[in-house]
Design a binder for these strands. Structure first.
Ligand SMILES: Nc1ncnc2c1ncn2[C@@H]1O[C@H](COP(=O)(O)OP(=O)(O)OP(=O)(O)O)[C@@H](O)[C@H]1O
Length: 775
DNA sequence: CGACGAGCGTAACAA
DNA sequence: ACGCTCGTCG
């Protein structure tokens, strides 16, 4: 791959200046116009919710091309998701020519970095075919590291190790830097694991998500010529959602803009919701001091929401102390009151939301596609899903990775990754005996040990199976057969010396199909007894479809040598496909014109808008989440999250909470979110539906229900009794009261303090006084 | 060597 | 309640 790929203009034709030009600024307000036409130097656009910043960026890109004569390839726009990038390109292409909009770089930080690294991979000692590790690959890598270091996963859970490593990487701290500052025992241990983890990834020619950013910074630091090249390429830079950029992203943007100094950041500090994964709100707050010549434009007029919704959001966010005040206003109508629904339990809540949506659809003609349900935790989607399925309302869930998280799909992708990058041990070991082909765990372990001992990669060791001690002929044959298969696949897409030219040009979907067949995955799932409906097989063929889709829709973006993407070698296509898969986001899964209600987390909702929005589970412990309640900063982020959710709504907003919620099979009483108290009463309509019978009249509610209920009637529980709770352990009943058909009790637990429990829900066990007890 | 069942930990948000 | 990991049996 050539290094000058980045300065390749797409066309010699002069730009057409379409008549659209004079309309460019039409319909924009004064501050919006200012943001669009301030093209030189640093510009900060502080934009309240629904103030049209997306429109501003889009217009600004078009303005740069058409009014300022900036060649499109000198423009870089960074969005938060691939979907946002696609939509932005789409909108730009409506004003300028297709060629021009295609020539601009509109991308997420991660995609941009992935591509920069692919082009300059040799500079940082990687092949262009490097793997991008997702969370599950990372998990496997950390487990391997712990294993090799003989560290107990009990004391160092992979998840917390990974989060420590991720934090370090976001601060651009590599393993040695981390080690250097590690003081206490725990941190030193983490440093050790970090080092090992890095060596595993290095050996595998793999980068994790954070590496994409960190290695790009490293590339810029170590290769000023590369940076200079990119600075010339990207002379005009725009970054959306700037409030949620992290330190590494700041460094990248800052480095790229250092020469031409045309950097436009847009965002809203009140919508910063990714602090927990290293986003630094200070980036946007310090923009003006960091770029002393920066101009600032404020967009405070909201075009999205009703007065009621905007006022509620504004009132809520006022409770955050660490913020600059903004004067949000709108010319839109007053609109309906916000519906605050109190329901009995999560099923009841889900059914109520469905009912409300049915009403909005039939009475107010709001299309399903313009309605959404938001929740704090993915686990809350399930009940909602069931309710929508039962009602027959079309719905979709924004979970971009859901498809690729399936075991059979992960296996298939692991094959593809291993084919392009055989050094990738995590993926190689995943599929080497999946489906079973007589390469036993023992064989693999021996090869691994051999590899470590001789400082070679596992694939190298395996390529001479006769030299691995203790392998019988059968195992040797199996290994050889597998390696031959791998070579054959590589030959098919032109990654082998012996490849013929024609072989390198096999179509991507055909190749994926070949791999599914040749690997035995297809056969395996054809005969899978546990899957009589052949669902997994269908998923595999869906993967072939998505490869087809990819070649049709996205390929141009990934092929850097611009001429005819369809003619790109199969290996290039495959690389692009794998990159795309690795970097999909949850919202990327949304199909906007499908006419279905969208279910998603509050985080995924950022930047979107819907006619009607329901936020479920607005309870203390969920929103704000219990793990944020003891930290003021985190609590304020929860409030911003709530703010983001509310401000997605154009016309109708429903906030719901359930009195009881089942977690891990335990039904617990809940409390309304404290955020309700921060909404002005006159804007809300309180609807309490929690009175009257519990649960379902239908028979499928849990059978234990009847049992506990009858035992409560028998007044089995008395004050002073010792009880055991499945989660809280041992405790003593302090108080029992009966009201509304159920029995409440306060129980003082040894380790968890006093908890209010509903005896009908809590699966309490009476402890025999004669047992040995710790009190 | 691979298929099934007990038992355990789990789920906060994500590229 | 559910999915994954470890252990036993064919
Ligand atoms: N000048 C304008 N006149 C009329 N409508 C506008 C104008 N500018 C933006 N809008 C509309 O306002 C809505 C919100 O715009 P947009 O999505 O760009 O907001 P945003 O600033 O990105 O919001 P957020 O920060 O909440 O994501 C869109 O429906 C858009 O069409």
């Amino acid at each position: 791959m050539s290094n000058d790929a980045f300065d390749a203009p797409l066309t010699d034709e002069p730009y057409e200046i379409p008549s659209g030009k004079r309309n460019l600024l039409e319909g924009l307000t004064e501050p919006q116009v200012q943001a669009v036409t301030t093209t030189e130097g640093a510009l900060l656009v502080l934009a309240g919710p629904g103030s049209g910043k997306t429109r501003v960026i889009t217009s600004r890109i078009a303005y740069l091309m058409l009014e300022c004569g900036i060649p499109p390839w000198n423009i870089l726009a960074i969005t938060f998701t691939n979907k946002a990038a696609g939509e932005m390109r789409e909108r730009v292409s409506q004003v300028v020519s297709q060629r021009q909009s295609d020539a601009a770089t509109i991308s997420t930080f991660h995609s941009l970095c992935a591509r920069i690294i692919r082009i300059y991979s040799d500079k940082i000692g990687l092949p262009a075919s490097y793997s991008i590790y997702d969370s599950s690959d990372q998990q496997r890598a950390v487990k391997r590291a712990l294993e090799e270091l003989e560290i107990n996963t009990k004391n160092f859970p992979p998840a917390s190790v990974l989060s420590a490593i991720s934090n370090a990487k976001n601060e651009l701290q590599n393993a040695s830097a981390f080690e250097a500052m590690a003081g206490d025992f725990y941190t030193k241990k983490i440093a050790q694991i970090y080092k090992k983890y890095e060596s595993i990834l290095n050996q595998s020619h793999a980068l994790d998500f954070d590496d994409l950013l960190m290695k790009t910074v490293q590339l810029f630091r170590e290769h000023p010529i590369v940076l200079a090249e990119l600075q010339e390429r990207y002379q005009y830079i725009m970054i959306d959602e700037y409030q949620d950029t992290n330190h590494a992203q700041f460094m990248i943007a800052n480095a790229l803009a250092a020469r031409h100094k045309n950097i436009c950041a847009t965002g809203d500090p009140d919508q910063s919701i990714y602090g927990w994964r290293g986003a630094n709100i200070q980036n946007i707050l310090d923009f003006e001091s960091h770029y002393p010549d920066a101009q600032t434009v404020r967009l405070e007029q909201n075009y999205r929401s009703t007065k009621t919704i905007l006022a509620a959001a504004d009132a809520l966010i006022q409770s955050n102390t660490a913020r600059k005040h903004k004067e949000l206003w709108t010319d839109n109508e007053q609109g309906h009151l916000i519906e605050c629904l109190t329901c009995r339990d999560s099923r009841h809540e889900a059914r109520q939301i469905v009912q409300e949506f049915e009403k909005l659809n039939s009475d107010e003609r709001i299309p399903w596609g313009s309605m959404a349900v938001f929740y704090r935790m993915n686990s809350l989607s399930r009940v909602m899903e069931d309710a929508f399925r039962d009602s027959g309302i079309p719905y979709q869930i924004a979970r971009g990775t859901a498809f690729y998280d399936r075991k059979e799909i992960k296996d298939a992708i692991a094959y593809l990754r291993t084919i392009v990058n055989p050094a990738d041990e995590i993926n190689l070991l995943r599929i080497i005996n999946t489906p079973a082909r007589g390469i036993s765990d023992k064989t693999v372990k021996t090869a691994q040990a051999q590899a470590v001992a001789s400082n070679r990669s596992v694939i190298e060791v395996l390529s001479q199976p006769e030299q691995i001690p203790g392998l019988n002929t059968r195992a040797i044959n199996s290994v050889n057969k597998f390696l031959d298969q791998l070579r054959e696949w590589r030959r098919l897409i032109g990654l082998n010396e012996t490849a013929t030219l024609a072989a390198g040009y096999m179509s991507l979907p055909d190749f994926v199909e070949q791999v599914l067949e040749g690997s035995g995955l297809a056969t395996f799932y054809k005969n899978d007894k546990s899957d009589p409906d052949r669902e997994r097989l269908a998923n595999l063929s869906e993967l072939v479809n998505s490869a087809q889709q990819f070649t049709e829709d996205f390929l141009e973006e990934f092929i850097i040598d611009d001429e005819a993407a369809d003619d790109a070698p199969a290996s290039q296509q495959l690389l692009g496909f794998l990159e795309r898969i690795a970097l999909v986001s949850d919202v990327d899964a949304i199909e906007s014109d499908q006419g279905s209600v969208t279910l998603m987390t509050l985080h995924a909702a950022k930047g979107l808008e819907f006619n009607a929005v329901a936020m479920i589970g607005v309870e203390d412990g969920l929103l704000p989440h219990e793990r944020s309640q003891n930290d003021d900063n985190e609590l304020e982020e929860e409030r911003r999250l709530c703010f983001v959710g509310i401000t997605r709504a154009m016309k109708r907003l429903i906030l719901s909470n359930a009195r009881y919620r089942t977690v891990f099979g335990q039904t617990m009483p809940t409390m309304k979110s404290r955020f309700f108290k921060e909404l002005p009463e006159e804007l809300c309509e309180q609807i309490d539906l929690s009175d009257g019978g519990f649960g379902d009249t239908s028979s499928d509610s849990s059978s234990s229900w009847g049992q506990t209920s009858s035992s409560a009637r028998d007044s089995k529980y008395q004050v002073g009794m010792l009880v055991r709770h499945p989660k809280f352990g041992l405790g003593r009943i302090q108080q029992v009261s009966s009201s509304g058909g159920h029995t409440k009790a306060s129980v003082a637990f040894n380790q968890y303090g006093v908890k209010p429990l509903i005896l009908e829900y809590a699966k309490l066990e009476i402890v025999d006084m004669n047992d040995d007890l710790p009190f």
